[in-house]
């Protein structure tokens, strides 16, 4: 059952994932964490961190990782977890594939199409809301365990927002901070 659900959820994520990796996170969380409880908020946050730090698009990295973890949490052995990875990675790419094939036939019409640009008048502001929802869903007691968490959050926010610190460097620094603070 979990296999079919994973396939369905990731096809959906691939089909409705407008607005880039961060906006996609809210789609992933809504199903994978909140609805089906395949993984915890903590695990999800860890997966986002690792997906950020490793090469490749965050959408692929997280799909591969979540496919593995969800199957693992369901009690399957490692071989089946790898199969889970394959399934989610394949499923998230399949809609792209079909859409590109469909669009290639009438590419010149799709370009500068008035319906597409009108749809984006609504999609663009909604993307901001999707990213906000992704951040808000992560702000719970699993990720913010004490006042120190809030200090780390504030520092990380300022470093990224004002000083444009590279995400990988930020994650490394936060990890070191965690080691020191929770010694």
């Amino acid at each position: 059952m979990i296999w079919l659900q994973l396939l369905y959820v990731y096809l959906k994520i691939g089909l409705f994932g407008f607005g880039g990796g961060y906006a996609m996170l809210s789609l992933i969380q809504a199903d994978v964490v909140e609805r089906y409880n395949w993984i915890s908020t903590q695990e999800f946050t860890d997966i986002v961190a690792i997906s950020q730090m490793t090469p490749g698009p965050i959408g692929i990295n997280s799909a591969t990782y979540i496919g593995y973890t969800a199957i693992q949490n369901a009690g399957y052995p490692p071989m089946m977890c790898i199969l889970g990875s394959c399934l989610t990675t394949f499923a998230v790419c399949l809609p792209s594939f079909l859409l590109v094939l469909a669009i290639s036939y009438f590419f010149s019409k799709f370009k500068n199409n008035k319906y597409v640009s009108a749809a984006f008048l609504g999609l663009r502001p909604a993307t901001v809301g999707l990213i906000a929802a992704a951040a808000l869903m992560l702000m719970n007691s699993q990720n913010f365990i004490d006042y120190k968490s809030f200090i780390i959050f504030a520092c990380a926010f300022i470093l990224t927002w004002k000083f444009k610190l590279h995400p990988i460097l930020l994650i490394v620094l936060a990890g070191i901070a965690g080691l020191i603070i929770y010694w």
């Binding site: 702000m139 994650i171 936060a174 965690g178």
Partner: peptide, 26 residues
């Protein structure tokens, strides 16, 4: 565990910032 305790709030910040920068860029 200690490393990830420190890392998790930072990940939330990493997602919160693009929300603001996207709002600004559009």
């Amino acid at each position: 565990e200690k490393i990830f305790k420190g890392l998790r709030p930072a990940v939330v910040a990493l997602i919160a910032v693009p929300c603001l920068t996207t709002a600004r860029s559009i």
